[in-house]
Amino acid sequence: MKFMKNAALTIFGVSAIAISTTETVAFGDTMKIGMPVAQTEFMAVFDQPFAAGFMMGVEEINAGGGIGGSVMLEVMQQDTRSEAAQSMLLMEEMIDNGAKVIFMSAGTSDVYAAGSIASQAEVLAFTAATVAGFDSVTGEYVRTLGPGDNQAAAAGAHFAADGLGAKTAFLLTSPDDPYTAHSTGYFASAFEAKGGEIIGEASFNLFQQEFGNVVQQIRSLPSEPDVIFTYAFEPDFPILVRQARAAGINSAILGGDAIDSPTIYAMGAAANGVYHMTLLPEDLESRDSMTNLVPVVQAAYGEGAGLDAFTTSGYLTAMLVRDAVLATGSTDPRDLNAWISDLEDYDTGMGPLTYKGLGAQPLATMHFVEVVDGAREYRGTVRLDADQIPAAVQ
């Protein structure tokens, strides 16, 4: 059996025309997918939920007889040990073993080191890394399912100004990773364009255990900032929050989607006044696109477990691969990548994504939540126009 070629298809609400291909899909085909992600060391806390969600999607597809009832997915998993050099070795090994799609680590250094290997081999790769403009280094075959940090940080500025009514902001930056180094600049440019004022800035190092100097700098300001903006993540972010609150600093603390994690919510009332971006809409679990995922997540994590951003994004990445194969009638990575690059308002189930004209990272709808006594409360939604996204720092 072969899929019809050049037929109009509707996938997740997106109309597309199947393009001519070099590798048509036949009954009994197996499509190999490589998964070089961190199973150990510091990146495992991020990579493992994404990988788990992706595997939930793969298992659902295979349980239904494969993509289109014909293409089974075979996943090769190995541990990068949170090391960029190991990511490079595993990327080469998995491509040599026939992988047509790679689900790689979210580590920025891993993406920069190994992503270009995928593009040179014309193999489609997905990552949860959000550092903006990485495709200028990796090439056109490495993609994300979410926005770059330039888009997300600018959206954070719009939320701070419009949703929180913030007039002043304090920035906390780390030069140790592009994600933490550049996000504050993106926020500042958008916040100032909205009429806001940056009244202070400090820096920190990743895995820093003491934020006393930062706390003292904030306390020494003539007036407390309306919002503290930082893309610090675990384990630094919880330490920062506890020390700031212990010092009597009551400013709203606004972070990125990397802190949308059980650790932050487990802080309970200690994290009150923390806000972060998420791609998950408030009504996500009731949407038809999540019907199959919710019970699988609850079986894995316990009755009553909700969907988190990491697991959900991994699952939806598997569904994007499925839709690309169905739409093109091909398992050739060149065809899949070309189809994705032309998508406009592709409905993932979380919201519409547009890749066309935007490179590796799509235009997305972002939601902002407040942590209240260990629970999330939705406070606003932002979707920027393409011309409102700051240029990526190269």
Rank of each mutant, 00 (worst) to 15 (best):
A26M: 11
G268L: 07
M56K: 09
A386P: 12
M290K: 03
A106D: 15
F233T: 15
A8L: 11
Y179G: 01
F211R: 04
N337R: 15
E285D: 03
A232S: 12
P295T: 15
L145K: 10
Q209F: 15
V131D: 08
S220R: 08
E23T: 13
H158I: 13
D323Y: 03
A258L: 08
V111F: 04
I61A: 12
R143S: 01
Q86M: 12
L164M: 07
Q151K: 01
Q217N: 06
G306K: 06
A85E: 05
G98Q: 11
E74Y: 08
A364L: 14
V58E: 00
I33W: 00
A246M: 05
M55G: 00
I67H: 00
P147R: 06
Y141S: 02
A114G: 00
P49M: 08
V382P: 00
D260M: 15
R81H: 11
D373G: 04
S116F: 09
G302T: 11
V131Y: 11
A153M: 13
G64L: 04
F159T: 00
T184H: 06
Y265A: 08
E377V: 10
S330P: 09
Y378W: 13
Q209H: 11
A169S: 05
V58L: 02
T24P: 03
A232T: 07
F50T: 11
L358E: 00
V274K: 09
E370L: 11
G273P: 15
A160V: 02
M72F: 10
M1C: 15
S174W: 03
Q216L: 14
T22Q: 13
A155H: 00
H367W: 06
F46Q: 14
I340W: 08
T312H: 05
T230C: 14
K2P: 06
I19Y: 07
A7N: 07
Y179Q: 02
M72H: 12
A309P: 04
L171V: 00
G64E: 09
L89G: 09
I61P: 11
A125L: 05
H276I: 13
A266Y: 14
A190C: 12
A299I: 05
I253E: 00
M366W: 01
V45T: 05
T10L: 08
L280C: 06
L171K: 01
D288R: 11
G139T: 05
E60H: 12
M88R: 10
M88H: 11
I218D: 02
G107T: 15
E303W: 11
D345A: 10
A244Q: 12
A188E: 13
F3Q: 12
E192I: 06
H182N: 13
L320D: 12
